[in-house]
Design a protein around this nucleic acid. Sequence first.
DNA 1: CTGAAAGCGCTTACAG
DNA 2: CTGAAAGCGCTTACAG
Lengths: 337, 337
Amino acid sequence: MPATIYDIAKKAGVSIATVSRVFNNSAKVSDKARTKVMKVADEMGYHPQAYAQGLASRKNNTVMIVVPVISNYFFMEVLSGVQDKLSQLNYELSIFNISPNKDIEEQVEHVLKRRWAEGYLFISIHLEDSQWENLKRYNVPITLIDEHYEGFDSVSVDNAQGAYRAAKSFFEQGYKRVAMLSALETSKPIRDRMKGYKKALNEFNLSFDEKLVVKGDSMQRDGFTERAGYEAMTKILDMKPMPEACFCASDIQAVGALKAMQDTGKRIPIIGYDDIELAEYMGLSTIRQPMRDMGFFATQNLIDRMNNPEKAISQTIYSPELVARSSTEVKNKKTGS
Amino acid sequence: MPATIYDIAKKAGVSIATVSRVFNNSAKVSDKARTKVMKVADEMGYHPQAYAQGLASRKNNTVMIVVPVISNYFFMEVLSGVQDKLSQLNYELSIFNISPNKDIEEQVEHVLKRRWAEGYLFISIHLEDSQWENLKRYNVPITLIDEHYEGFDSVSVDNAQGAYRAAKSFFEQGYKRVAMLSALETSKPIRDRMKGYKKALNEFNLSFDEKLVVKGDSMQRDGFTERAGYEAMTKILDMKPMPEACFCASDIQAVGALKAMQDTGKRIPIIGYDDIELAEYMGLSTIRQPMRDMGFFATQNLIDRMNNPEKAISQTIYSPELVARSSTEVKNKKTGS
DNA sequence: CTGAAAGCGCTTACAG
DNA sequence: CTGAAAGCGCTTACAG
């Protein structure tokens, strides 16, 4: 049996209150008592149990990330921003993974009810406004990343604008039949990016052709995979007439798309979305989302709210920018419009 | 204030013991009481608090992953295996991130002392035997992934053998000056892979030339990054005479290496290490580590131990295999030996 | 099947 | 600066 605060108190000849104070860095402990307690605690390998502390103090110094599908490049980069921020502070980080097979809202509520953390970072959790509203009653600090809802602090990127910029850049170069390599239509990012794609079409007086919106057959991770990208691009290259350029819904799909072009020997300019670290090394033109910054900033924001619950709610929206690399440099590039 | 078990008990007209039993799926509750409690609990949005349950029952149904540098491809894939297994069971998953800037053993001990979970999966945590031995006294279920120590269950891959196979395949094709694109020398995987590289050299009667072991300058994530791979390959391609082939310590470094070759126009066959999902789409020959399987199997193993602490300790070691793709198909390939 | 009661290992006013 | 004591929200023998 591991030592408890009672064991330490007895051995150090003090009360459990004093032991507790030592571990909580309370100033009101004599150096003598502090030294003695630390010595004994060290000998016995003692450290306060998280669960007992949490129950008694009603706080646990923990920030929890709630995220669906953890093995995802976007998440990884956001996470590194979160970690950068958190490591400057004295909070512990825990991650809860929402399963894609069960009801999302239910799982989120479950996490909140369990009261695991003092503050939550929701990453890429997309709910209806009414569901978000419903979550407000838990009255706990939550910051949304990659999602937008007026009732909570949020940090997101304007997806429609990103897609718009990508499509627009193609149209400006004179391409008219620009495919959109898509993923699960009902997913929030796809819905938003679709809007941007259509907006650009509109602006250039081009009509929307649903045949140009293509997704793969594999739908794991909502279709944001190399495989789905490969499948979709294979279809695109098979179309007659073949589209002149392609906007991909994510860099990871674009990786699959590049491979499909290589395998078939056909090649059209493509633009990805995200700017994951790899993109630079693959020469992939893409729409940059400042993922690390988002994680860093959102964490700062969450901590601020934890310290000051009355703080005004803020929405932070980043504008994504186009990063041009070799995947859009194609020899037979058209010019003029 | 959120509802407690007392609120529910009072409103449902039963004792707190009954409420507790309902939530713990105890069979010994009348349907009537169960229905009533569930109804009230639902109305009041009640769910037992993790910390109070954990304290009272001394278990928390949680498995914790302890891992350094979370944003890493190897980890992501192992994780998906863990999740596959865990989603079949009723355990909750939490992740603790070991900071690379602080003492690792200290952080690990801290986690164990805090008693956050009932079982731990240590991924890519490398310690000395004496340190592992020291950890045994916590007497808690731990399964090691990507590390090997006799005192704990472990699931790992034979790193030396993987490197050996990669190097050997080059030597068999007649290459003699085979570079090793390395990373932080003191890291465990590098030390092991170095052994395999040397073993192959030996077998082919080639002498070890330390100039052929090259790493990048960026040492974040111990040098296992695209950038470090790019830097290292740039150096390799600059050497006179230029090495004839290159074994990379990880796929992610190989991605950087491929870019360096593309940028300089020089090209030598390369083999990566890991077989991350991307490798297939980049045509990267590599040494496959069964990452998902490792995660899946290790989780199974951990759960088994949690249910049966007396179970014999087992070491599972996978043999990595070479997956040949286009990155080793170079036109000026030599033949014969 | 159900309830009263002790206990899990801490924190934190309160009194000194 | 320090200790006695109540309380955090649960679980779980024990007795019925």
